[in-house]
Design a protein around this nucleic acid. Structure first.
Length: 572
DNA sequence: ACCGAAAA
């Protein structure tokens, strides 16, 4: 039953659920419209949405019975399925939702809001001294966040890429340690890659912190949320009975946390634990059901939360036209974005190029650029392997080879190719097939040297995370997978890994936008296959789809540091 | 229609 609710990917499952409901909770008065309601709710849940808005319109493919929404609501009312305490469906604020998810979300929000109500008190003198030292390094919004640590029990920090979220967190940790030096701090993120990135940027900025507190911050290790909570198949090892021994916990990349994980987290906290939640509400929601972070930013919240919320607006990344259009997308939506795109910009630096393609075969320009890029990588791997000593051990540190390895990885960071989907003529797989040719269906050992690859599992002892990108180097017996990892000494080092040690790897010549979340490159090529359909669908039920596409596009283009090539398919 | 994540 639980799985049917979690994975309702086709209408058969939705129909099965409907039949089960009819059997288990027979309607007081039956009407066929009930099937539509179950179907809509199931489909919404499949998309990660917990509710269906009554004011949304649906067409005949989504509804079997006429009279939406009045007839459906009446059928629901008479069925008794929305009865207090027992009915499976909730109808409130013009929204329909499953009781199970409705209650879970309300519980989580209530818990969060109650926590935020608690007050903290601190010694005034130390604060004054610290506040003076803040003046130089932080802007007004960032200072507000740092000051919140003094008396807010829960702090929400939102902001786009380059707004200094982590450097603000670093100053918050410093201040927290100043107030109580023995503070037990925890750091976590929803994915292995995000966890490591948080740790790395705290290390990078550590010099801005008073030397007295540096060690205390550096010694905190940053793990995935699942690991922190000791997640197993039967639930979380850290829970109400066995809470985390922490006074302060920082969670980064909150946009990827779903409801179940958030619930587990809140249950594992002691009442006194302070919470700092950090993330960008414009990025993609989690695939699982219920994005707490997006909900918190799209809905009216209790007044007492105002002091807990800090939004960082100022971006320190200057990207000319890329910055202008991504801001427009964020504020005005897809249509305005595409309108601006087709006017040639005069005012800011032109670093965004649009290519309109006639058919849906892969653009030739893309394949040519990839060809050169992969060749560069190949040359650099050959250079690196020639410098390699004999009898090398896997996982060794590179020592004198750092320069060659640095060249290789800066070349890798130069270009990123993104697609919204895996399948389809403009999907990631199509690009891999086009580039790898006959090698596509073969094993890794057949892929050519210089091919970028992605590690698809978290391997803590190898210091590799899911989503890490490396390169194939060498041939046959002398073949290695080269990665850059954060070593125990918190230094970026090159690591050679024997191909047999990684069970799940995939080519990484192109990536899905989802996978690229958190990565950046100087130059970005984005294939966006269906822009015209979005410009046409303005007012029907596509508002939710549009927010999804908006976030997808926003996430994609903000990966570009210097240049963006956007490929679109022409409407003709 | 499409897109993940984590753990043992």
């Amino acid at each position: 039953m639980k799985n049917t609710i979690n994975n309702p990917f086709n209408s058969d499952l939705s129909y099965a659920l409907y039949k089960t409901l009819l059997k288990r909770i027979p309607p007081i008065k039956f009407a066929p419209h009930l099937e539509d309601i179950v179907n809509l709710l199931t489909k919404a849940l499949a998309k990660g949405e917990l509710e269906v808005k009554v004011e949304d319109e649906f067409d005949q493919t989504q509804l079997k019975w006429p009279g939406w929404p009045e007839s459906h609501l009446e059928a629901l009312k008479k069925s008794g399925w929305t009865n207090n305490e027992s009915g499976p469906i909730i109808f409130e604020d013009n929204c329909l939702s499953w009781r199970r998810w409705y209650e879970e979300r309300n519980d989580v929000l209530k818990e969060l809001f109650d926590r935020a109500k608690q007050n903290k008190t601190n010694c005034k003198e130390t604060i004054v001294k610290f506040t003076q030292s803040l003046e130089k390094s932080l802007n007004q919004e960032q200072k507000q966040a740092v000051e919140a640590i003094e008396n807010q029990h829960v702090i929400f920090i939102s902001g786009g890429p380059g707004t200094g979220k982590t450097s603000t967190v670093l100053k918050m940790l410093e201040r927290a340690l100043l107030l109580s030096p023995d503070l037990r701090i925890g750091l976590a993120a929803p994915t292995g890659k995000a966890a490591r990135r948080l740790q790395a940027s705290l290390h990078k900025g550590i010099k801005t912190v008073d030397a007295h507190y540096q060690d205390a911050i550096l010694k905190v290790s940053c793990s995935t949320l699942h690991k922190l909570l000791q997640s197993t198949q039967d639930g979380f090892g850290q829970n109400k009975q066995n809470p985390l021994n922490l006074d302060l916990l920082v969670i980064d990349e909150m946009s990827m946390v779903d409801l179940t994980l958030m619930k587990g987290l809140l249950e594992a906290l002691t009442p006194s634990c302070q919470l700092i939640l950090v993330g960008d509400p414009h990025q993609l929601p989690p695939v699982g059901s219920g994005s707490v972070w997006h909900y918190l930013h799209e809905n009216k919240l209790p007044a007492h939360l105002e002091k807990s919320r800090v939004h960082l607006k100022k971006s320190y990344r200057n990207q000319g036209q890329i910055a202008v259009s991504s801001n427009l997308l964020k504020e005005k939506g897809l249509n305005s974005f595409f309108k601006l795109l087709f006017k040639s910009p005069k005012t800011s630096e032109v670093n965004l190029k649009v290519h309109i393609c006639q058919q849906s075969t892969l653009p030739k320009k893309l394949l040519v650029q990839l060809h050169y890029h992969l060749n560069d990588l190949k040359v650099l791997t050959e250079k690196l392997i020639r410098k390699l000593p004999e009898n090398i051990q896997s996982s060794r540190e590179m020592g004198a080879l750092e320069k060659e390895s640095e060249d290789l990885f800066s070349c890798l960071d130069e270009l990123m190719v993104l697609c919204p989907t895996r399948k389809g003529s403009w999907g990631v797989d199509a690009i891999h097939k086009a580039v790898l040719g006959k090698h596509f269906d073969e094993k890794v050992d057949q892929w050519p040297q210089g091919t970028p690859i992605m590690c698809c599992e978290n391997l803590v002892d190898l210091e590799l995370a899911n989503g890490d990108i490396g390169i194939i180097m060498g041939e046959r017996k002398n073949r290695w997978l080269v990665f850059q990892v954060m070593s125990e000494k918190k230094k970026l080092t090159t690591r050679l890994i024997h191909p047999a040690r990684l069970k799940t790897i995939s080519p990484a010549i192109a990536l899905t936008v989802h996978k690229a979340q958190g990565s950046e490159s100087n130059k970005l090529i984005l294939l966006w296959p269906n822009h015209q359909s979005q410009c046409v669908q303005v007012n029907n039920n596509s508002s939710k789809k549009n927010t999804y596409d908006e976030r997808l596009l926003y996430t994609a283009i903000t990966r570009a540091k210097k240049k963006l090539d956007l490929f679109l398919i022409s409407d003709i």
